[in-house]
C-alpha cells in the first residue's frame, strides 16, 4: 500500500448549532502519519470536531487544510470509522468491505479482510458476526480505500474490554504498516495513551491540553510511566479548567457554556 499520511491543519474552527456554540476557535496541527487522540467529557464537542474534519458538517467559522489545501466537505482521501459499525446488513461481508471500490478490485478487498483476520467470513451476512468482528469489517472497509487520514469516532466504545484491547492492537499495527494520519476521538484515556503520539483534551469547545506521549511502542499498560501519564491526564480531565499543570502545553479556555 502506498497511501502516506496527510498533514492536517485546523485554524480557528468553530461550530454553532442554533444558539449553542459547540466548538469555538479550535487550532490544531497534526503531522503526516501522526496518531492524535482527542479526548474530553461527553458533550465537549470532540465528536463535532471529527465530523467537521470529515466534511459531514459545515463549520460556522474557521478552516480545515489537508496538506495545505483547503477542505470543503467530503474528501475521498478521508475515511471515517463510526462508533456503530454501520455495515450494510443486506450485503455480504466482502461486499461491505468493497463498498467504496465501486464493485471492482474485490481481490484487494479480500486481502484487507485477511489483514483484519476475517478472510474466511467473506461470504457471510453481517448479522452472523459478533460486535468486534463487525467493527473489524468496518475497519477493513475504511482501509481498503487507502485513506490518507483515518477518523475514528469512538469506534471501540461498544465493545467488551478484551475485544477492545485486541482491536486497539490491530488498529495500531495497521496504522504502522499503512502510514496514514489518524485522529481518534475517545473518552477512554487509557486507549488514547496506548495508541496515540499526542493527546489533545477538549474542554468547553476548545483544546485545553496538548500532551505528547513519548512512550515506546507497543506500549506496556503495566509500566509505571504509562500509569503515571494516564493518571495525570485523568486528573486534568476531572479537575476542570482551573487546575495547574505539571507538564504539556496548555491553551487558555474561554468560559463559554457548552454542556
Amino acid at each position: 500500500m502506498t497511501a502516506a499520511g496527510v498533514r492536517l491543519e485546523i485554524t480557528d474552527l468553530g461550530k454553532r448549532f442554533g444558539s449553542r456554540m459547540v466548538l469555538g476557535g479550535v487550532n490544531l496541527k497534526v503531522e503526516a502519519g501522526e496518531f492524535v487522540a482527542v479526548i474530553g467529557r461527553s458533550g465537549c464537542g470532540k465528536s463535532t470536531l471529527l465530523r467537521l474534519v470529515a466534511g459531514l458538517e459545515q463549520p460556522t467559522m474557521g478552516r480545515i487544510y489537508l496538506d495545505g489545501r483547503l477542505s470543503r466537505g467530503l474528501d475521498p482521501t478521508v475515511k471515517v470509522m463510526f462508533q456503530d459499525e454501520r455495515l450494510l446488513m443486506w450485503k455480504r461481508v466482502l461486499d461491505n468491505v468493497a463498498l467504496g471500490l465501486g464493485g471492482k478490485d474485490r481481490e484487494r478487498a479480500q486481502r484487507v479482510l485477511a489483514q483484519v483476520g476475517l478472510a474466511e467470513r467473506a461470504g457471510d451476512w453481517p448479522r452472523m458476526l459478533s460486535g468486534g468482528q463487525r467493527q473489524r469489517v468496518a475497519l477493513a472497509r475504511a482501509l481498503v480505500n487507502q485513506p490518507r487520514l483515518l477518523l475514528l469516532d469512538e469506534p471501540l466504545g461498544a465493545l467488551d474490554a478484551l475485544t477492545r484491547l485486541e482491536m486497539q492492537r490491530l488498529i495500531e499495527q495497521l496504522w504502522q504498516v499503512n502510514g496514514f494520519t489518524a485522529l481518534l476521538v475517545t473518552h477512554d484515556v487509557q486507549e488514547a495513551v496506548a495508541l496515540c503520539d499526542r493527546v489533545v483534551l477538549i474542554e468547553q469547545g476548545r483544546p485545553s491540553l496538548d500532551m505528547p506521549v513519548n512512550l515506546p511502542r507497543p506500549r506496556v499498560r503495566s509500566s509505571p510511566h504509562f500509569a503515571a501519564l494516564v493518571g495525570e491526564i485523568l486528573e486534568r480531565v476531572m479537575s476542570g479548567t482551573e487546575a495547574p499543570l505539571k507538564s504539556g502545553r496548555t491553551v487558555p479556555a474561554s468560559g463559554r457554556e457548552t454542556t
Partner: peptide, 22 residues
C-alpha cells in the same frame, strides 16, 4: 438508518449508488 446513508456518502457513493445500494 440515516447513519448508514451518511456512511455511504463518506465512502463515495453518488445519488444513484445510494439509492440502489442503500
Amino acid at each position: 438508518d440515516p447513519g448508514v446513508i451518511e456512511m455511504g456518502r463518506v465512502y463515495g457513493l453518488g445519488p444513484a449508488a445510494l439509492f440502489w445500494q442503500i
